[in-house]
Each structure stands twice: as C-alpha cells, then as structure tokens.
Amino acid sequence: MKIFDKLNGLVVPLDRANVDTDAIIPKQYLKSIERTGFGPNLFDGWRYLDPGEPGMDHGKRRPNPDFVLNRPRYRGAQILLARDNFGCGSSREHAPWALADYGLRAIIAPSYADIFYNNSFKNGLLPIVLERDAVDRLFRETEAAPGYTLTVDLAAQTVTTPSGAVFQFEIDAFRKHCLLNGLDDIGLTLEHVDEIRAYEARRRKEAPWLFV
C-alpha cells in the first residue's frame, strides 16, 4: 500500500452529487488486466467530446473545454472536491486506480459510497469526509481563487485552507495507521494464520456443509 501522510495540493471542484463509478471510469476500460494506465480515461465521458475505446491514443482526442478537469487553472490538481455520495455504483477498483493514476491523492466530499471509500484506502487515495457546509465553503473558495490549494495532514486529521482555516476530519484508526505506514492488509492478516485455522476447525464441526 502507498504511504499517505501530508499533502499540499491544487484543488479541482467537481460540482455534481452522486458521481458514480461508471462516470469515473467507463466500462470499456475495465477490460484491461492491468492496474495502471487508467488516468487518461478518468471521467472519460465528460472529459472528451469524442467517444473513447481502449487502445486509442487519448492525447489525440478532443477534450471537452467545459469539463472542469480540462480547464488550465486546474491542471496538476491533486485534491478533488466533490459532492454527496461520491463513487456510488459498482465495486470496480478501477475507479480509485484511475483517480490515483491521474495524479489525485485526496478527495473531499460530504459522503461516499461504501465500497468506493474502502477501495480508495487500498490505493493510497485518501477520501476525506467534511460537513456539507465546509464543503460548500471550499467550493466557493476554490472557484473564486485560481491556484487555490489545501493542506491535508493525515496524522493531525486536518484540512487547512490558504487563509488558515482548519477543518478536522474523522477517520478510523486502523485505516489511518495503514495509510500512514503503507501497510499491506494481506500481510497483516497472515499474522493471524493460527486464529484463522482454529476458526476453520471449529466451523467444520459446527457447520460441516460449508466445507464440502
């Protein structure tokens, strides 16, 4: 797992609620058997005016000038500002892969869909939950000030604006610990091999039909 600790990054505002995983990375790119290379197709349907297929040279396609990620002032953004229920829809981990591959490191939204939220952590992408009022304020400030950046401090669980306003966020201790230290879940679980075996032995007796 990739380490996340502190970040000062340019913010891009995506002013839509219920952004689903089909919008984040459309299905035709899910045919890839790789974990990387999804960045050029992040928000593909909104980002380009012409339809995209895997294997195309996406640099040659026609970008949609109205889509926020294509506006020059947001080039190089590392923090995505979003609305409620971000990442709803499918379980595809291609969604956080695409966001991370594009260069985004953190998302700020009032709420996320569960599976997307979970998947993000596995890829060093930090989904931050802030109150709706705070998110509204960040949208206003970002849109008003080109070059607007935020500082995210995972250890302190804070988001700090250029003017020094600080927003505290919640995150569960286990996920925070894994992200700060870049720990691998499978490795952690395999420290408990004996307990897994003991559980299996007990269940085999209680419910043998589960093991046929």
Partner: peptide, 22 residues
Amino acid sequence: FGIGTSEVEHVLATQCLIQKKS
C-alpha cells in the same frame, strides 16, 4: 457484499476480510 479487487486478492490469500461492522 461486493468487494474491490484488493479485497478479492485478500480473500483468495487468506479466506478472510478486514471489516468494520455496519
């Protein structure tokens, strides 16, 4: 419940998942 690909690997490797109760 549905899981992401990292969790698919986790289940394959350990038959378990790290979960928080809903």
